[in-house]
Every structure is written in C-alpha cells, then in structure tokens.
Design a protein around this nucleic acid. Structure first.
Lengths: 240, 240
DNA sequence: AAGAAAACTGGACCGCGGTCCGCTTGGGAT
DNA sequence: ATCCCAAGCGGACCGCGGTCCAGTTTTCTT
C-alpha cells in the first residue's frame, strides 16, 4: 500500500489526531511541527498537559523503552482512548515529548546566532549543524530511539523533513551543481539516532571521534578541506 | 537496557533460536549468516521447510507487511510456538526469507567476477557494490522493509555488519588515511531500504537518479572524480 | 436560558507478537 | 527390540498498541 500524504492513507482512527502537520507544502517554510493546539477544548487541553506530565515522569522512572500507552493513561487518570486521540500513536506521544527540544533547535537554525543560524558561510553552518544535532541526539537518545517511526514513515516525518530541507538548502549554496537533495539524505543519515546509538553505546566510540567523522564527511561531500587537519592523527580506528 | 552481544541480553525465549550467528568475531570472515541447520532433527527440518514455503506463499498473496506469525503457523499446519522457536521473531523469519538472495550477494562480493568481486580497483568495486545492492534492494524492497530490525539492533544485524565490513575494507584501500569505519556507515546509509523506499516510492525519483547519486557520493567520499561526468547535466533536481 | 451540534471521553474490545510449559517424538546407546 | 532423554512441539496465555462507540461535556447559536 502506497502513501499519498503524511498520515497513513487509511482513514485516521479519530476525526483527526490533531498532532500532525497540515498539508505537506506547509512545512517547507514552517517549523515542521504545527503550533500548540490552535483551538482545544478546555478539558482536552488539561488532559493533554496531564498526559505529557505523566509520560515525562514515567520515562524518567522506567525509561522511554518501557513506556506504555496504557500506563500513561492510568498515570494521568484518563482513558486509554484519550491518549490515542490526542497523540495518534506511541510515536506521536514520544514526538510530543521531544517537541520542546525540537522547536528550540529549529529556532536556532532559522534565526539563532551564526554559525548555526544564518550569517555564516554554508559549509561552516553545515559543520555547526552536525555538531549541534549530534549533541542534541546524544542528549535525547533514549526518546529518539523509542520514538522512531516505522520504516515507511521515517523519512516523511515532519521534524526529519525539516532538517533535511535545511541541509539541502545549505548544500545548494555550498555545492550548487550537485544533487543536493540526495546528498542531504546522506548527511542526515550520518546523524541518525540509531547509528549514533550503535556507535557510541554498542561500539563504544568516543563522541569526539563521531564528531570528527562529521567534519570530515562534510569536507568530503562539499569537496572542501577539513578545518584543522594534518596536525592531529586522522582518527586511530581501533577497529577490533 | 544495554546489549552485551548480538542477541538481547535477556535470556532467549527457547534454548536458542538457531537462526542467529555464533560469537560476534565469527562473522568477520564468515558469511554473516550461519550455515543451514548443521544438525536439525528430521521433523524440525521438515517443519522449517514447510514454514518457509508457507511464508513465501502468504507474502506473495497478501504482501510482506500483512504477514503474521500466526498465519504462517496455521498455513504450515504447525503450532505458533514452533515458528518462534525456529526463527526467533518476525524479523528472523523475514530474514530467513531473504537468506537466499543474501548469500548470493555475499558470494558475488567475496568471489564473484570483478568489478563486484575481487580483482578491480577498490573505488570501482565500491561503485559496483552500490549499484548491485541498489538493484537487489529495489527487488526485495517489500521484504526488507517489513523485516527491518528494531532501532537498537539494526546496525548489529549480521547481514548489515557483513556489508559494512566489506565497504570498510574497500574504503581502507581507497582512502587509507580516513576513518573508514565511519565513512562506511555513511555509504551504507545511502543504500538503506527505507531511504530507497522513500526516494523511489514516496518521492518518485527514478532509480537512475538514485544510482547517479551513489556514484557521485562514492566520488566525493573517496575524493576521486565521477566516471562519465561533464557530458550530461548534473542531475536536474525537480525538487518541490 | 435552552437546545443542538461538535468535541471529547473512557473502557471494552481486537489482533498480533512473543512466552511458557506439559506433552510427544526422533534417534542414538545398549 | 528397548530404553532414554534431549530436541522439538503446540496451543493456552499475556501484554501492548490500536480501534470503536455509547455516553458525557463544552461551546456555539438564537
């Protein structure tokens, strides 16, 4: 079954899970996450807050992987159906938990100080982007892993699309005659939470090496030179 | 909860799911998939065959995404427990379905004719590798998507590790002074099934463009020149 | 203030992935 | 031929994600 838009082609479980974005084109310039409940009934808003608070507490207590929708509902003194109506599915709930951090990051990209925000040359912004996203991902790794969308939706998820779009734009400035959309996917893939998790937690690489890998990757992809290269050894690779 | 090895740290559901590889070091030189049941009781072997056949039929009939373990068990006239004992979990069953193709591909890499097999210069082998894997992935896309391991296990799965190792080795020949292990992750990420699915089915890119993207990526990562560049336009990018 | 439509609620319900455990069976050893 | 027991078996069982819908609450209209 193919998808026509963002949400599943099948009819949504309820009138509308509310937590999704509008038409696809919107997020091209928007934040990738719609504004906080534009018009939410008083009780609904209260329940939403309760749910988020409960979820946050449960994650802190038992870890994101162990978070169940039912437990959140119970902890918030609310019916299970309410959780799903509000957040669509487990992924949506986890995404909501990440929303704050997400927005902050997006804001920093769009209007923060350089080199992350506008004002610096594109390659420098790319470098900063990767390092910042790396930091953020390490920070929120548990939520990111637990909240990963299914394979079919992964690349269509608004936050990812937003970041991808950002990278694409920077690349177009840096390497105008390349297929920047594809190249952006490559760069984004390097920063994917499951990969970071694998590298840092399973393989035990120091984050410094991962960061150096990003800088090198940007250099290669944009066919520029690494900053500060040649003075230190080129990553020792204690492979196994 | 962190992982100590390949299978979950928790005790396996049965004595041993049988379908996994041995100790991690083994797959460094092995195929990444253990040999066909080295010693399997007659009835067990028969049931295994039945199960695979039934699964294949069900996938052909209803699609891989709709495949349920229970349905496979029923269709094979076998108890549900047997399916899980044999294949560990849904992912394992799907992996078994892909096993044939997997081995063929691995054999081609290890001992097939160049440029895929040994004998060609590393960069050329990388190019061929990507194109071949791309073809294979497009071919088996449905199974690959349906059988994707969970985020935590994804990069630790034997087939992936094997391919990653292969790319790492080629890269070490091509760019000796780079962090080839990380670079290999980047290259592998470009060939990930969910990304290919997104690009070809959701965004509608022609596979030709995706293939060109691979060749360009290899060129950039290895800091070489694209083959046949300059004659055609550099990927038109009909973005929005 | 009253009535009606829309939004929201909660918990019963379903299907599936995965586990458990008492029973069966295959295939050496004697 | 018989015994024995590890390997295998299967289906009852569990928990969770997700759906449904009859009833409730809020808010809009007049």
């Amino acid at each position: 079954m193919l998808y026509a838009g963002f949400m599943s082609a099948a009819l949504p479980p309820f009138p509308r899970p509310q937590e999704n974005v509008g038409p696809l084109e919107l997020l091209q310039l928007g934040t990738g996450i719609d504004e906080d409940e534009p018009c939410l009934r008083a009780d609904a808003a209260r329940n939403r807050a309760r749910l988020l608070e409960a979820a946050e507490r449960l994650v802190a207590e038992h870890g994101a992987a162990a978070l169940t929708m039912e437990a959140v509902a119970t902890a918030a003194c609310v019916g299970k159906g309410t959780v799903f109506r509000r957040f669509g599915d487990r992924t949506g709930l986890l995404a909501a938990l990440l929303d704050h951090s997400e927005r902050k990051f997006q804001a920093a990209l769009l209007s923060g100080p350089p080199p992350l925000g506008p004002g610096a040359p594109p390659v420098e912004r790319l470098r900063a982007f990767g390092c910042a996203l790396l930091d953020r991902s390490v920070d929120k790794l548990e939520l990111l892993l637990a909240g990963e969308p299914s394979a079919e939706r992964r690349h269509a998820f608004p936050p990812r699309r937003f970041l991808h779009q950002h990278v694409t734009l920077l690349l177009r400035e840096a390497v105008p005659d390349a297929d920047c959309e594809l190249l952006a996917h490559t760069l984004m893939a390097y920063l994917d939470a499951p990969l970071i998790h694998h590298l840092t937690e399973q393989r035990g690489l120091p984050t410094e090496r991962v960061r150096a890998g990003w800088l090198d990757l940007v250099a290669r992809v944009t066919r520029t030179e690494s900053p500060a290269r040649g003075s230190e050894s080129p990553a020792t690779e204690p492979t196994a």
